[in-house]
Design a protein around this nucleic acid. Structure first.
Lengths: 111, 111
DNA sequence: ATCGTATATCGTAAATCTACGATAAACAAG
DNA sequence: CTTGTTTATCGTAGATTTACGATATACGAT
């Protein structure tokens, strides 16, 4: 972004845009799917699943965590992650609401 | 991005990530909502709705068009845009499928 | 205490994104 | 044909993203 102009938009739009950004990389989608399929899992497990360096995976995990979509707990020298169910549900609901409104609005349009 | 590594991921994930990226800016969300609410509309109309310069709005429109979420037709010296209903429906379906799978996977998990 | 393992963070480079003004292009109107 | 209007594109600056290796940190094990 340049000279972040985002403050000029609605809170709702900014939130949804932020969540979209969290999903806007295939590695992060893959991480979410992996976490869901495996239950909770260690960073190291994700690293072997992904074609990325350990530090890069760690960075993507941080992004997902900051977006609130996953949570992590320390387990000895390891980190165990899992999906933040409540927030993930909120995310999906937001998308759904957004999409439903659009589709409702255009349902009688010719274009 | 650096040295785009995206080719290493599944086609599906890349597609959804790409769509997410299209939604990952409040201006583009605002444009989609505006287009839906107004039916089709001119670039100029969007410009007055948004706190952005004309060239910036045009850039966002281009991004949405390249993502397939809107379509535009030339109308004299103007451009008239509207939502690409079919692709938008696909987008929503993709999100829904993705989210539903995750939620299904984690439904019995304690985390 | 030392060593090994797992993960986060730092530093950095390249790519991309976002924004703007300036300009080009396309057309209607006169 | 010239003028004015509308939109796209170009050039550019600054911020952010993505990636990696190297290092720091945290802890278990010996």
């Amino acid at each position: 972004m340049a000279i972040a102009r985002t403050s000029a938009f609605s809170e709702k739009d900014r939130l949804l845009a932020n969540w979209s950004k969290a999903l806007a990389h295939p590695a992060r989608l893959a991480i979410l799917k992996s976490l869901a399929a495996r239950g909770e899992c260690l960073c190291g497990t994700l690293v072997v699943d992904l074609p990325l360096a350990q530090s890069t995976v760690s960075q993507h995990l941080k992004a997902l965590k900051e977006a609130g979509l996953i949570q992590g707990e320390v387990d000895g020298p390891r980190s165990r992650y899992c999906i933040h169910r409540k927030n993930f549900e909120k995310l999906m609901k937001s998308f759904d609401t957004f999409g439903a409104q659009i589709l409702e609005d255009i349902k009688d349009q010719s274009c």
